[in-house]
Design a protein around this nucleic acid. Structure first.
Lengths: 244, 244
DNA sequence: CGCTATCTTGACAATCTTCAAGGCCTGTGG
DNA sequence: CCACAGGCCTTGAAGATTGTCAAGATAGCG
């Protein structure tokens, strides 16, 4: 296990919640400051090293997770090792809804991650007292569903070029402070991108080179891109532009 | 518009709800019989002809839908006509969660469909009085999310053979009364299947022929299959068997 | 009974994968 | 401080799965 539990168990983590990076934009903010103690009492803070897994496909789904800080990838595996990333999560994201009795996916940290772990059972009972939290979760699930449908369109019908352009476009959209011409850091490897887009590493690499050569992006380092022409990138992503 | 509103507006549809095919296994059964009148008052029953659309991608997302009877397909379109089916819905299924301000997908009836249409705004207020309904919706969203992740794996990493086998397997799983050797009716066309699996009509057709020739299925008519070897079909779907 | 949809099958083409090799970057240890 | 090792990324050539184009078969419907 790569779990490293920190912080005092039980009470006293109240303050930690109030200062949490995720508090402002996660499900937690459905709860008023005065009620946070109750929530904190249910959470276990877990630190995960970069590359460490904290949800394992097939395990009993006993917990929900909220990402307090960091980035992680979600994926499914086939028996022969083929892998499909189903999404990325970031600070504030909630995790574990898409599960029956067992987790149907794995989660692995891309950089050092801190997650709040909640017992599924206990959290459900919390919903009775804080219905706003449940509503928040429903919103989160709706957003995930929306993203999943877009990804199905990407995987089922888009060309490699369109997939990579779509990916870069959405990454840029997630960093609102990053404007055209700014460096956009990519926290995942080419292999992760490939498994997210249903392509091979080689095709991702070749396609990014092609986008660079056509002037749409620059690649200052292999873990950074700068988008030179946002409009063109979007046209490519949407299939409005045929070729270039 | 293919809408054909039926039934008296306002009150008096109480009984209709109580006898609805969907009542037993839809979100509606989170509501007690005595409270159904309130729910019925909010619903508009809509009859949709086979082939008729009742949700249009891009339209303002003003309604939720519950399928009272029939089958429908959900899909997204690209500007050049490429289509990706994101799922099928059946009697009892709830629709419209995966939407922001506008619908991000379209819905079209596969056979004559009856849906209950609810105003999004009014339904949300109903949640305050019937929290069980919201919980039910969250469960439904979780299931949809689970299915979406499986579909991403299928679209991103499975071969044509594996995709078709997966599809037939899940269709069979949806008809619990249909056992090995029984005829399984397919309510969708080859084109729908192709757009659901991210393939072309030709590839679906060829692949089904190949499965037939290898003895895994029979195809008594183009809209029916019988699964001759459930275990083999599952092995193919999971990629456990390489070729045949 | 023929018309039109849909489905099947065949030949060829193209995108993407596979296999292979070389370069780059980082971190570690001498 | 530099050399080396291992990952990760890039690039090339060949191959395969799937798509495209085309024609014929089957079936449902007026």
């Amino acid at each position: 296990m790569v779990f490293v539990a920190t912080g005092p168990p039980g009470n006293g983590r109240h303050a930690e919640c109030l200062s949490c990076d995720a508090r402002s934009h996660s499900v937690c903010n459905a709860i008023k400051n005065k009620d946070v103690a109750r929530l904190a009492g249910l959470a276990t803070v877990v630190e995960v090293k970069a590359g460490g897994g904290f949800i394992h496909e097939g395990d009993a789904a006993e917990h929900f997770f909220n990402v307090a800080h960091g980035d992680a990838k979600l994926y499914k595996l086939m028996s022969d090792g083929r892998r499909q990333l189903t999404g990325f999560v970031r600070t504030g994201d909630f995790l574990g809804l898409a599960a029956g009795k067992n987790y149907s996916f794995s989660a692995e940290a891309l950089d050092p991650v801190r997650v709040c772990r909640f017992s599924r059972k206990k959290l459900t009972s919390l919903f009775d007292d804080f219905p706003a939290m449940e509503r928040r979760l429903l919103e989160a699930a709706s957003n995930d569903l929306l993203a999943a449908q877009n990804q199905m369109l990407l995987l089922g019908r888009k060309t490699a070029r369109e997939r990579v352009a779509s990916f870069l476009g959405s990454q840029a959209a997630l960093a609102p402070s990053c404007h055209q011409g700014d460096r956009l850091p990519l926290s995942m490897t080419r292999g992760d991108i490939a498994d997210y887009l249903g392509l091979t590493i080689e095709t991702v690499s070749r396609t990014m080179t092609a986008l660079r050569k056509s002037g749409v992006i620059k690649i200052p380092s292999s873990s950074e891109v700068t988008i030179q022409d946002t409009a063109a990138l979007k046209s490519i992503a949407d299939g409005t532009i045929a070729l270039d």
